[in-house]
Design a protein around this nucleic acid. Structure first.
Length: 500
RNA sequence: GCGGGUGUAGUUCAAUGGUAGAACGGCAGCCUUCCAAGCUGCAUACGUGGGUUCGAUUCCCAUCACCCGCUCCA
């Protein structure tokens, strides 16, 4: 049975996992709110990541514990930091659209052949057009040779002249729109007056502020290379096309580790982190067959990266026909020392690490396992969503007990007699340690069904026998099987199940 | 941003140029000793804004949101 995004989105809304932001105003493209259960789920994944990274980081490849510290930096930083990282300059490229071919081009990549005599039409070519091709097309469209033209990139040409330019993939002039700026960064103004001199940006990724704090952390935390700095927090990108539920949102949450090491140790640590991160996803319930590893081809790598492995998950929306598809859940990148180099240059501050034992100074290289918390939540939901026609709800969420937003529900078998006070007592005891639900109303079948739909792994039911012998029924979500255990054992039971 | 599609209770659907029905879900009650059972009742919707019209949920336009494709994804 295939998983359908429509059903998953409907369940998320119906049961309070994820809502459209500003829903009552018709929503806002690219923004989502987490409801009562979605928040619990997201916190569970977040806390687990933090535990695995900062509180109990893995044992290193040499068998020794490794060292990672956490930070929680401001979303708005000095705008110069984004100039240094390349975010301000790199994504300000003006783009033009062709109304006829529906293609989009970077204006500075389009080369326009303008007739030297000013007579006739100008012809545009995309950046990778070859000489022979250009000559042939010019002859066909204008009956002139390349020598009769002067070449200029489109961004240098007045918009009024666009009506005379034949676009790269069409035969008639005037189909190109005026250039538009596409910058992925949200900007804002610091202080009450809006103006260019107090313009600032919402961070487009959380790793930026980690690098800005590199020196502060080294100076204050007694860390030694190799070590890591981790951060969880919001990031903002003005995506061209937010799509696929929360997968590509304009406001989202990232969990990033910057692992600082010496250049010669890069391959060792790179492999180490790929392995650790894979273990992580498997331990929170993502099955191996739903994961896919993409060694990003050289030509698609970001300019600062010499190697990146994308950990992709088999999201339902990525499916093409009958073929399963995958989309990025995490990226593990070797960033070199690009960021520290840039920040050292732009800030004028020395950011070199001093290795006392070796008596040398250097800018460490960085391995960056970077994942989307909100993407992770979506992956957990998609993974957990299980169609089962043999049960009343028709579907259940197969979360691991550790990730499940509710660990257990306490259900008095009937709303009468003495079941309720006993259930209430158990509930109050359990909620001190676990996220649990007390559900009294309606018949027991409906309540089991409800808990199935929100992925609660266990239900404890109080009946007449409970009053006699202090035992409760444990009903297991996936198998729907039941066993009786003593009320005193309930906490231990849950502890053991959650720990795995 | 472009092209195509969709928009009616929480969800899934229905009907209609004279302001809307159902199923399931929710809530309340009855009943119930273990899987959405049964009975009774209640609440909840025409995405938003214009226009045409005596009258628009229905026709037209715009807008917003979602889905598919393209583009984008640093």
């Amino acid at each position: 049975m295939t998983k359908d995004m429509k059903d998953i989105v409907a369940l998320c809304k119906r049961r309070g996992f994820i809502f459209a932001a500003s829903d009552i105003y018709g929503g806002l493209n690219g923004f989502w709110d987490y409801g009562p259960l979605g928040t619990e789920l997201k916190n569970n994944l977040r806390d687990r990541w933090w535990k695995d990274m900062v509180l109990c980081p893995p044992i290193g490849p040499d068998g020794a514990p490794i060292e990672i510290v956490g930070v929680d930096a401001s979303i708005i930083q000095n705008p110069k930091s984004w100039e240094a990282s390349g975010h301000v300059g790199g994504f300000n490229d003006p783009m033009v659209d062709c109304k006829e071919s529906k293609k989009r081009y970077r204006a500075d990549h389009v080369r326009v052949y303008l007739p030297k005599d000013g007579e006739g039409q100008a012809v545009a070519f995309d950046k990778d057009a070859e000489e022979a091709e250009i000559e042939k097309r010019l002859k066909k469209l204008t009956k002139k040779a390349p020598a009769d033209f002067e070449v200029e990139t489109l961004d240098k040409i007045d918009v009024e002249k666009f009506t005379n330019i034949i676009g790269p993939d069409v035969k008639t002039p005037g189909t190109l729109t005026e250039p538009r700026q596409f910058n992925m960064m949200f900007h804002t103004f610091v202080g009450a007056n809006a103006g260019d001199d107090n313009k600032a940006y919402l961070r487009p990724e959380t790793c930026g502020p980690i690098f800005l704090n590199f020196k502060n952390v080294v100076d204050s935390s007694r860390v030694k290379v190799p070590f890591g700095i981790a951060q969880i927090g919001k990031a903002f990108r003005n995506e061209v096309t937010p799509r696929n539920f929360v997968f590509r949102s304009r406001e989202f949450e990232q969990m990033e580790l910057e692992w600082f090491c010496e250049e010669e140790d890069v391959p060792k640590w790179f492999d180490f982190w790929v392995e650790q991160r894979t273990k992580f996803w498997e331990s929170v319930g993502i099955t191996k067959d739903a994961l896919h590893f993409l060694d990003v081809p050289k030509e698609e790598l970001a300019h600062y990266s010499s190697r990146t492995i994308d950990v992709e998950y088999q999201f339902p929306f990525a499916q093409k026909g009958d073929e399963p598809g995958f989309d990025e859940l995490e990226g593990i990148a070797h960033r070199g020392n690009y960021d520290l180099t840039k920040h050292q240059e732009y800030s004028g501050q020395k950011l070199e690490y001093f290795d006392q034992a070796e008596n040398k100074r250097y800018l460490p290289h960085v391995i960056e396992p970077s994942t989307g918390l909100t993407r992770g939540v979506l992956a957990l939901i998609c993974q957990a969503y299980t169609v089962d026609e043999n049960r009343p709800s028709g579907v259940y969420l197969n979360f691991t007990p550790e990730m499940a937003p509710k660990k257990a529900a306490i259900l008095p078998l009937t709303a009468k007699e003495d079941h309720v006070p006993t259930a209430q007592k158990l509930y109050l005891e359990l909620r001190e340690e676990f996220t649990v639900d007390l559900d009294i109303k309606q018949n027991i079948g409906k309540r089991y069904a409800r808990q199935d739909e929100i992925g609660t792994p266990y239900c404890f039911t109080i009946d007449n026998d409970t009053l006699q012998d202090q035992t409760v029924t444990v009903r297991e979500r996936n198998t729907m099987s039941q066993e009786r255990i003593h009320m005193d054992k309930v906490k231990d039971f849950l502890r053991e199940k959650i720990r795995g």
